[in-house]
Design a protein around this nucleic acid. Structure first.
Length: 110
DNA sequence: GTTCTCACA
DNA sequence: TGTGAGAA
């Protein structure tokens, strides 16, 4: 369903929930956000609202930290992933265009 | 009662 | 990164 992505992106969870789900201190969570590892929104009174995607990302970050990676390593990894994903999307877009052209070509030949 | 920001022995 | 103060 298209709704699934929307639900995961919904930033509605308070930091206390994130703390329980990730076993990280709220101090650490806020620090990681300051290092651009998270995309949070602000609610009433400037309080952070996290999404399920943030939870998943924080768990990954904690795992990487435990295996000795620095915050910079993690940041770089997400950066390269972001670039690679953009390229993949571009490739998919080109492929879909090619398919459309092939369809049109077949139709015109008839 | 919770979360936020800022500062530090 | 932790902790504590003061505000919202």
């Amino acid at each position: 369903m298209i709704d699934e992505r929307l639900k995961k992106d919904l930033a509605i969870l308070p930091i206390s929930t994130i703390r329980a789900l990730t076993n990280l201190s709220d101090r650490q969570i806020r620090y990681y956000e300051s290092q651009d590892l998270l995309t949070t929104k602000r609610g009433k009174g400037g309080q952070r609202r996290f999404s399920l995607n943030d939870v998943e990302r924080l768990i990954e970050i904690r795992t990487m930290m435990e295996s000795g990676d620095s915050l910079k390593d993690i940041h770089d990894l997400y950066e390269t992933n972001r670039v690679r994903n953009r390229q993949d999307e571009k490739i998919d877009f080109v492929r879909s265009l090619e398919n459309e052209f092939l369809k049109i070509g077949r139709l015109e030949k008839h």
